[in-house]
Design a protein around this nucleic acid. Sequence first.
RNA 1: GAGCCCGUAGCUCAGCGGUAGAGCAUUCGCCUUUUAAGCGAGGGGCCCUGGGUUCGAAUCCCAGCGGGCUCACCA
Length: 519
Amino acid sequence: MNTKINYRNSKAWPFIEAHKILKKIYKEKEKKIINFETGYGPSGIPHIGTFAEVLRTNMVRNALKEIYDCKSKLIAFSDDLDALKKVPEDYPFQDKLLKYINFPLSSIPDFTGKYSSYAEKNNNLLKEFLNQFNFDYEFISSTKKYNSGDFDQCLLKVLENYENISNIILPTLRKERRASYSPFLPICKETGKVLEVPIKVVSKEDGIISYKDQNNKEIETLVTKGNCKLQWKVDWAMRWSALDIDYEMNGKDLIPSFELSKQISRFINNKVPINMPYELFLDQNGEKISKSKGNGLSIEEWMKYGTKESLALFMYQNPRRAKRLYFDCIPKSMDEYKKNRDNLVNKDRELIENPIWHIHEGIIPSSTYPVEFSTLINLVTALNTSDTNTIYNFCLLYIKKDLSQDEQNNLKLIINLAVNYFQNFILPKLKKREPTKKEKEVISNLIIEIKKSKAELSSEEYQNLIYKYGKLLYPENLREWFISLYQILFGSENGPRLGSLFYLYKKEKVLKILEEVIK
RNA sequence: GAGCCCGUAGCUCAGCGGUAGAGCAUUCGCCUUUUAAGCGAGGGGCCCUGGGUUCGAAUCCCAGCGGGCUCACCA
């Protein structure tokens, strides 16, 4: 911790959140470790929202580290004992999965055969994403925790307060649902399904309840040792106590649920984390992003066109505001990242207000890419090519200074991203125009002249030739000539300096391109 | 019905007590050689309305109007 900085006045939200934690734990003298939790439901592939939650929670954790010397832990908790409620629309083995409705996710096979269960596959996808960002986290499987008995003590407490807890939930439910509601969901020994059935308390001391199975037979079961799962709002509250959770974020859709779980926790160990609700991501039209609709962006899609840092920056900005998440966000975020990185000053005070500090957990990279991403996209568009070497060499012509190894690597990296962006979003919209009869004539004369030259031409020589023939066609207004060439060659009104481009392409390729145009 | 978010340039948004900002769009000027991947110059705003706090409000508070999302099945 740097004592010179007054963190208390920081406007950066991770510090504001960290101070809320500090304020609370000052009262708990025994506190040895601060636990941050993020939840994940592995019923489908990880959502970008889940990812955002981990990223943002980690930013708070990092801010806390800066102001308070204390151990902390980031828990990624997977609700893999939850029952499968419906088959995700994009899942390839629809029919096979349909047979497993109401089964715990961790008990469903993975039909690709690569993982031990359906939940395991999705859990691993999440871990892969988190590992890409080098998060330091502890992954916890709900199934393992229930089965190991780690939750037993808290489960018995829930049973002990069965009536009190039920009374909190029941008023929030509709009549039909009230009849069948129970905080405990027995896992059927015969079928393996998670049952939503009314239960009777048999013995609070021994932790035994009973329910009627599908054949109307009265079955007794322990609530402990993985025989029962808690209904989720109770489950959430139980987890706070069992895992001693100090901080947890949630989407605004869970605000009412959080309030209920908070009440429930009074009957367990009364542990309620500091909480920050965040706004949900919207798509281009302002609608909620959902996997089934396929709108908005997935993590993979972002990573195809932007760096992980640009994604992290997007997640950092204004978590309490609903933000539209679509393709246009990527170049903007890429440019803002560079701007923030270039604006970095060494003053501590300003450093912690800069998103870059939070994105990189306080360890600032020594350099970033040497050109703005949007400029690079313009270049790729102007060159109308996906050839990364040509683009790279043109960049070097333009930058005119030596690049460090890091900068070279960064440049190569974002050129690939820019090419992807160009191919998917710009190329389909470009329309090259046919040259007029006169233009064809002039271009073919240009071709002849280039052919005449024995050696390779320099960029100046190419440029001179272009001027020479342009003057024949547009003696008063050479500008028209260039606009025409750009339209014919690239489908846009602006373009690169043609002499330089031809020089990079070399004679053979230049001739090929020009001949193609006048066919 | 309840909760949350948002109303700032034509569009998308940033700013969140101290002279109204960016990108894109638009208008004008610029191609025989310091980078047209553009460059230079301009136009465009009762910062939703009304009240309050303040020396001072786009910014904070209250009320309203408008837009949107979420929850009230499941998680």
